[in-house]
Amino acid sequence: MLTRKFTAMLTLIILTALLWLDLVNSKPLDPFRAPAVLALGSGQAGAGAHCAALPTAD
């Protein structure tokens, strides 16, 4: 009989596979291009990649 362990492990395995696929197909990570640790006080504008953001061409 399958238990919750099966689904939890399956979820983690799929997530790990997706992350691997993502790293292979994306720009390499670069800590030297990283934004400031805290957005507050950084002087940088927010990226706007949020579910509540109304998409505009601006």
Binding site: L18, V37, A39, L40, A47, A49, H50, A52
Partner: peptide
């Protein structure tokens, strides 16, 4: 909010995946 500059969200990330 303070670290990211935006509030806690969930669904944008899922759609991005």
């Amino acid at each position: 909010l303070v670290v990211a500059g935006q509030p806690w969200g969930v669904v944008y990330g899922l759609g991005l995946w």
